[in-house]
Design a protein around this nucleic acid. Structure first.
Lengths: 213, 213
DNA sequence: GTGTGTGAAAGTATTCACAGCC
DNA sequence: GGCTGTGAATACTTTCACACAC
């Protein structure tokens, strides 16, 4: 069986695949060569049937009575997740958070290639922030036109985030990872994901506060 | 495992409440005093029924035929989310990301009070990182014993994250917000939430790659 | 025997649609 | 007229349980 289309893959499955991948890579580095759905489920904190069901959307990767070969399951998952290629990224916002991400080289190893950083503050433009010089946001459109940019990572203040997202999407960037504390919107067919510190803190607050309201 | 959750509020509702709150605060600062579920839904990108259903788990906050009073809905949501009080936090890991979070004062305004930062590297201990001096992780247990710490924010490398989480939870911290790229586990009744950059990037990769696998 | 792959069942979440109130 | 609050309906997700392969 070949050519599963991913519009039938449940949205909830996708982030789990990346957690399976990470755990499998960790197991591989410790010398594990075979794993059952039960062992992997234990390691990532889920149910074995969840894992088998998730994998079943993409193919049959296991051997009955045995389990999964760690190395080949890693390869399959990377293929499913589109990690058998390189994605070009830019970071917009060269503050502390943007700089932290630029210097976080771990994801370069997974195929995310940081092409450049942009900021609007004269004080940081031209400075080195782990990936060449910081460019002016004025140059965004030109840069996107002459380089394939797959993912724009937004680490600007909330006040300018949506405007910058609109600009990069209009210039042709197909996806956005937004760290600014706004609910960003993009025009179809572009896609956006949010990383939202304050929502996570407030969720903790809710569960800590379990006699309130 | 037996997961005893708060009341009967769906887990999916909780993070949405914080997004409603953020948008309402933004609307209030622009002078809006009344809002209908349709207007709020439009602003946050969801369905009006979703909002009414989410709010209905906590009470009846609206006026039929009119909508919601922005100011009083803000107050109600803050109460529901436990934001009518102060939560004490610490940051463990004084690298770029930890420092970025420490300097991000926006969440101080929502009632999250940063008590201190901890690191294990001699080079940063004692340095100023936006909130007094960075303390040694050796002092964690003493600090937690003598100060009420509600939330530990983990911004360390993956290799030491789970060990530090185990230590702070054992010392009595009831909740953890983990930025390290591991799937952290905590012993009941402590709670943990993950902010996972690489999972988000890989999810984008999956959807960008829509003819793969 | 062991463990996968998968329909069916159970459990959650979202959306509809309308009664009731302003 | 408008809009909320909510049971009912739909859609989605997880878990069960067992046929089947090793």
């Amino acid at each position: 069986m070949a050519g599963n289309k991913n519009h039938s893959v449940p949205a909830a499955t996708v982030p789990r695949l990346s957690r399976y991948l990470r755990k499998l890579q960790e197991m591989q580095s410790r010398g594990t060569s075979t794993v059952s759905s039960r062992q992997l489920a234990e390691a990532v904190g889920t149910n074995p049937a969840q894992i088998r069901k998730d994998l079943s959307y993409f193919g049959e990767f296991g051997i009955r009575g045995v389990g999964y070969d760690v190395a080949s399951l890693i390869e399959e998952l990377k293929k499913c997740l589109g990690l058998d290629r390189t994605w070009n990224t830019i970071i917009i916002g060269a503050g502390k958070l943007g700089t932290a991400l630029a210097r976080y080289r771990a994801f370069q190893k997974q195929g995310f290639n940081l092409l450049g950083m942009f900021d609007s503050a004269a004080a940081v433009i031209g400075k080195s922030r782990g990936v060449g010089h910081v460019k002016s946001t004025d140059e965004l459109e030109d840069f996107i036109t002459s380089n394939r940019v797959d993912i724009a990572i937004i680490t600007t203040p909330a006040s300018v985030a949506q405007e910058l997202i609109d600009r990069v999407v209009a210039a042709g960037v197909p996806s956005v990872l937004n760290f600014a504390p706004i609910r960003a919107h993009v025009k179809e067919p572009a896609i956006v994901r949010q990383v939202d510190l304050s929502t996570e803190l407030m969720s903790l607050s809710f569960y800590l506060n379990n006699q309130g309201c």
